[in-house]
Design a protein around this nucleic acid. Structure first.
Lengths: 122, 122
DNA sequence: TAGTGACATGATGGAATCATCATATTGACT
DNA sequence: AGTCAATATGATGATTCCATCATGTCACTA
């Protein structure tokens, strides 16, 4: 079982990586961590204003995908990016999107009938 | 409605991008297109051995996310990457994964109880 | 314009993900 | 030990995504 993933073609693993990135809250969390090197859950929560358990679940997803590393020090848990390339990945994605957006202002608005954003009024 | 996406914070748009990438078949398609510049649906189908309509739906998703561009010439439809940065994005993702894999051989195997792969036996 | 090949779209059941709520664990302080 | 703050885990209904099948459209040829 341990190598079941490694045995799979790389694009399976890669899809899994992107799946871990495929949520606005998680993107936001990673970007916060891209800026600040290290943050506690409380600090993250203060930034994104999300219910604690909900935030914790997203952090859990990020951990499972090995995108972040958590470390408990005292009564707080500190999170940081698992690898600097993650920052790079987000940067490339941002650059790509800006290019696409400049090509077509409307871009993803039609994208799969954009699942309505909940909580954050657009 | 047209700018509803642009009005949203970039991480929403970015999550949407990653959502478009979050499927092994679509990753595979993009990688095929990364290698070959331009391919017909038939050619793609020959490579990935997928039911025509199923393939078409994934191509549809990629189109909606503006990741590929399709062009009909005669009785065939040609697909290519919408932007060279997409190739770059995949390359960064690959590099990141290789790093993570070397750090932890087991990597994503435990990731969210890896949704069993259907159709393609690993 | 009938027929065939190449793609695309629509509908449907099932799996996976998300948001919310309740509950459990861990550490600091008393 | 008891309590409170910080964080994580589990369960549930709603939404979204995926795979399969049936049908529809466009282009070429006869």
């Amino acid at each position: 079982m341990s190598l079941s993933q490694s045995r799979r073609p790389l694009y399976e693993v890669k899809a899994n990586l992107f799946k871990g990135l495929a949520h606005p809250v998680r993107i936001r969390l990673l970007e916060l961590l891209s800026d600040t090197e290290e943050l506690t859950v409380s600090a993250l929560q203060a930034e994104i204003e999300l219910e604690a358990s909900h935030l914790s679940q997203h952090l859990s997803v990020l951990r499972r995908h090995h995108l972040v590393i958590s470390e408990r020090r005292g009564s707080h848990v500190f999170y940081r990016l698992a690898d600097p390339r993650i920052r790079e990945l987000l940067a490339v994605a941002r650059a790509l999107l800006l290019t696409l957006l400049s090509q077509d202002t409307d871009l993803l608005s039609a994208a799969q009938g954009l699942p309505e954003i909940r909580g954050a009024d657009g």
